[in-house]
Amino acid sequence: PQEEYKKRAKKALKKGDEDTAREALKRAGLSPDQAEEFIRRFL
């Protein structure tokens, strides 16, 4: 589910792994723009 992928993305970002985070967010159904926004907000 979407929440699970978002959790995964946050874990990846904590490790500084933005590529894995983007992949997880893409799987969560976010557009690339939404994924970038999510990452920017998190960092």
Rank of each mutant, 00 (worst) to 15 (best):
L25S: 00
E3Q: 08
R8T: 11
D17W: 04
L25I: 02
S31E: 06
L43M: 11
L25E: 00
R40I: 08
E18P: 11
R27C: 12
E18Y: 15
E37W: 06
A24H: 15
P32G: 08
R8W: 11
G16R: 05
A12W: 04
L43H: 10
L13K: 01
R8E: 14
E4I: 09
D33Q: 13
E18H: 13
E4C: 12
E36W: 05
G16K: 05
R27H: 12
K10D: 05
S31W: 04
T20V: 08
E3P: 06
D17F: 05
K26G: 08
E37N: 06
E18I: 15
F38S: 00
E3A: 10
R41M: 11
K26N: 08
A24F: 15
Q2F: 11
Q2D: 11
K14Q: 14
K7R: 13
A9I: 04
K15P: 01
L43P: 04
I39F: 03
R22Y: 06
K7Y: 07
A9K: 02
K14A: 15
E3T: 07
A28F: 04
R40S: 07
T20A: 14
A9P: 01
E36M: 06
Q34S: 06
L30R: 00
Y5P: 03
E37S: 07
A9F: 03
E18D: 07
D17H: 06
A35Q: 09
E4Y: 14
L25A: 01
R40Y: 09
L30G: 00
R8D: 10
R40P: 00
L25R: 00
I39H: 01
K14G: 09
K7F: 06
E37Q: 08
R27L: 15
R27G: 07
I39A: 01
L43T: 09
L30T: 01
F42R: 03
L30D: 00
Q2L: 12
Q2S: 12
K7E: 15
S31R: 06
A28C: 05
K7I: 10
D17M: 06
G29F: 03
Y5W: 15
A28R: 01
D33K: 11
E23D: 11
E36G: 04
R22D: 00
R22S: 03
E4A: 09
F42H: 08
L25T: 00
S31F: 04
R22V: 04
E23M: 07
L43S: 08
F38K: 00
D19H: 12
L30Y: 11
E3N: 10
P1I: 14
E36D: 12
L25W: 00
I39R: 01
Y5V: 04
A9L: 03
I39Y: 02
K14W: 11
K11S: 13
A21N: 00
R22K: 06
S31Q: 06
E23T: 07
D19A: 14
S31G: 06
S31D: 10
E4P: 05
E18T: 14
R27S: 11
E4G: 07
D17N: 06
K26W: 07
R41T: 09
